[in-house]
Write a protein that binds this DNA or RNA. Structure first.
Lengths: 208, 208
DNA sequence: CTTAGTTTGTGAACTTATTCACAAGCCTTC
DNA sequence: GAAGGCTTGTGAATAAGTTCACAAACTAAG
């Protein structure tokens, strides 16, 4: 399969969320043009994105909503339940552990870890915070697929080394630093400072 | 000034964070090549990004660290303090209100709002949760620059209409939906579901 | 003062991503 | 079952973004 751009994957994810809404409203069919309008893009873009994976539409009619959303779930790998661990039991980690959105979309939070002795052993929802030192051992049993890293910047490189050592191949990083990981580990960054600075830039340069 | 790509702005933001680290370590000069290595890009990319705004380096020598970081702060509009309000006093809103990173980078959280009667009036850090109905009135006095929207998906469109009505021109959106706003309002989205699905896709398609 | 060693700034080349545009296919109606 | 009205799927054209490659400019050393 040819390489798929990250921007394409983001759009697929977006289309899926629209389709789920539309499905709930009982609409059974949708055109690329309607999907494009919802997502702020063009119909050609929608069709091109989908055509990378096959032909799912009917000419003259559009796409069958349940069929297409099933197809997208399959493409995005949402058929299986992914096992997630949260590393870093601070404010962000806490918010994430309680976030309903994970489970809703098939991401099962199966463990929480921290370096801080004071936090280890505390209960969080239905989980107990464990020592990061146990991660590698736990991972061999629990087979985590994804690590959500929400540690202070200074601890993060060491934490990430442990995550990599535990054999986890996907990281969602909330720390405001650039991770360095082997090529077979996929990283996505959520960096609030960067987003805010993007807004700051936009506000400063309006009308240029 | 010519249009600057979002990807460029993200990189500038990244360079700035590296420069701040380097500055603290006392290094006074840095080459585009070093910056590139830190950011996982190429030296040509770094130079091209910077050259969009001027010539800040010295040939044969590189960039003066304090000078360049000052220049980047200026470009990104970080010279002034931006006034931020958080809309949505739920879990994410709470985590954000307590997040130190805002203030550190010149983003002053000056208000928290919610629709929920039960939450209005509660104290959060040094702020009191106010009714979203007050936003427009408050905005005329407080002159919010940025609204951080962290409301449940179903309330978000209405909330965003109020934010727009209050004259706020920049929104950081945490709700998992696509906002529709006038062209002069800049939106950045932070969508965890989308990031997780990106990782899910990557995990499902390794080695293709 | 000249040479050797760096590193920038930037057109040009290349690569990637988006948009255009239209033939092919499907549905409905008569 | 033929005609009209849509909408897909996709090559071709365009636009956007990245990398190449090199002259120009600076430092340090002799």
């Amino acid at each position: 399969m040819k390489r798929i751009a990250e921007s394409t994957v983001r759009r697929l994810s977006l289309y899926l969320s629209f389709l789920e809404g539309i499905e709930r409203q009982g609409q059974t069919t949708i055109s690329s043009d309607d999907l494009a309008r919802l997502g702020g893009t063009t119909s050609a873009q929608v069709r091109k994105d989908l055509s990378l994976f096959g032909s799912f539409g009917k000419r003259g009619l559009g796409y069958a909503v349940p069929e297409l959303s099933e197809k997208l779930r399959e493409i995005l790998g949402l058929g299986k339940e992914w096992k997630v661990c949260i590393v870093g039991a601070g404010k962000i980690g806490a918010a994430l552990a309680r976030y309903r959105g994970f489970a809703e979309r098939g991401f099962h939070v199966a463990g929480v870890y921290d370096v801080d002795e004071a936090k280890i052993g505390k209960r969080w929802e239905n989980l107990t915070v464990r020592s990061i030192a146990d991660l590698e051992k736990d991972a061999s049993k629990l087979e985590y697929d994804i690590a959500v890293v929400a540690t202070p910047a200074e601890n993060t490189p060491a934490v990430v080394r442990q995550v990599v050592r535990a054999g986890i191949k996907a990281i969602l990083n909330f720390a405001p630093i650039q991770l360095s990981v082997p090529a077979d580990v996929t990283v996505r960054n959520v960096n609030m400072a960067m987003e805010l600075e993007g807004l700051s830039f936009a506000l400063s340069n309006r009308g240029d």
